[in-house]
Simulated scan of single mutants.
Amino acid sequence: MTTIRANGVDLGVESFGREEDPLVLLTGGTTMLSWPDSLCRRVAGGGRRVVRYDLRDSGESSTGDPEDPTYNLRDLADDASKLICALGSETAHLGGVGVGGMAAQVAALDHPEVVSALTLVSTRPVAPGPVDDDLPDHDQSAMSAVLSRPQPDWTDRRAVAQYAAEGATTLGNDPEQARATAARIWDRTPTPETSVHQANQLGKVFSRIDCSPRWRERLGDLRIPSLVIHGRADPFFPVGNGEVLAAEIPDAQLLIQEGMGTQMPERATEDIATAMLRL
């Protein structure tokens, strides 16, 4: 792992595979650990240089004030395009999870010269906040269960990992995978400040950033190979969001993972990697 300066910020990155292979750049959602190690290794083993990175205010990337961010969604999209160049590549297959998937969509639309393919996981074609009438919103019973739980002591690694494990089933995820990932995220958090730990674990900072103007109406302009991956059991962005996203991107492939929630499970690694390597 290292940091690379791009678009005026330091971005935490981790690389897999050979530098001379075609670049696959994976945008965290919020940290790079949204992309499982096994998936990164499998794609790299297919002849790709895989680089995953942390969004701003997460992991080892530049951290400001997560409760009052001074950047917007287009800055995140610009981070991706500039990072491609900073990594010494002319183009990249760009992947994004959750809000990282939103940034990836905007990057592909605003910087078509550097994005050669697109993989979007557990995301939707509109910004955080109220959704369009034809898109399913968060499952309210699941969100109520998640939001009503007492917050952990964010300075206590074990408590944070336990909190993630106990909420995993509600989000359609594997408790032990959630526990292990939360502990790793905690270890990579650069400060004991509660707001920073919450930004890393929950991504709340991204509900506060400016995501205007809309981009959904531009998706039909995309002319690159695209793959949309969504979990059938995702209560945060229900599967209908992925179905609509795939329908509006010309010739996009849709891969629905049965039993997958908000987190890519280890058992899905082979299917997802195989689909990505076909782009």
Results as ranks from 00 to 15, higher is better:
Tyr163Arg: 01
Val205Phe: 04
Gly231Asn: 01
Phe206Gly: 03
Gly172Tyr: 05
Thr170Trp: 13
His230Asn: 12
Gly220Ser: 13
Ala165Leu: 02
Ala180Ser: 13
Leu219Gly: 11
Ala233Gln: 05
Ile224Arg: 11
Ala168Asp: 03
Pro130Cys: 05
Arg232Ser: 09
Arg216Ile: 05
Arg158Lys: 15
Gly172Glu: 14
Thr123Trp: 11
Pro152Gln: 08
Gly231Ile: 00
Val146Arg: 15
Glu217Gly: 11
Ile224Lys: 02
Leu171Phe: 06
Glu166Ala: 13
Pro213Met: 08
Pro136Glu: 01
Val228Gln: 03
Ser141Trp: 09
Ala183Cys: 10
Arg216Tyr: 12
Asn200Ile: 02
Arg218Ala: 10
Gly220His: 12
Thr181Asp: 13
Gln198Gly: 09
Asp187Asn: 05
Asp221Asn: 14
Ala168Tyr: 00
Asp137His: 12
Val131Lys: 04
Arg214Tyr: 10
Leu171Cys: 08
Gly240Ala: 02
Arg216Val: 13
Ala233Met: 05
Leu227Lys: 03
Phe237Asp: 01
Lys204Ile: 10
Asp156Tyr: 06
Thr191Gln: 04
Glu193Gln: 15
Asn241Phe: 02
Trp154His: 05
Pro152Lys: 04
Asp156Val: 10
Val160Gly: 01
Ala142Cys: 08
Ala178Val: 05
Asp134Met: 09
Ser148Met: 06
Leu135Lys: 05
Ala159Val: 04
Val126Ser: 07
Thr191Met: 10
Leu202Cys: 12
Arg208Gly: 13
Pro136Ile: 04
Gln177Ile: 02
Ile229Ala: 06
Ser141Asp: 12
Pro235Cys: 04
Thr181Cys: 14
Trp186Met: 09
His197Ala: 11
Pro235Leu: 04
Ile229Asn: 00
Gln177Arg: 08
Trp186Thr: 09
Arg188Ser: 13
Asp153Cys: 12
Thr194His: 15
Val244Pro: 05
Gly172Thr: 02
Leu219Phe: 04
Gln151Asn: 09
Val228Phe: 07
Gly167Phe: 02
Ala161Trp: 08
Leu147Gly: 09
Ile209Val: 09
Ala161Asp: 06
Glu166Asp: 15
Glu243Ser: 10
Arg179Gly: 01
Thr123Glu: 09
Pro190Met: 10
Ala246Phe: 03
Ala127Cys: 11
Asp137Phe: 15
Arg157His: 12
Asp221Ile: 14
Asp139Pro: 08
Ala247Thr: 07
Ala180Tyr: 03
Trp186Ile: 04
Arg218Ser: 10
Ser207His: 14
Leu219Trp: 04
Gln201Leu: 09
Pro175Gln: 01
Pro235Tyr: 01
Ala178Pro: 06
Ser226Ile: 06
Ser144Asn: 15
Pro192Arg: 15
Glu166Phe: 09
Arg124Cys: 14
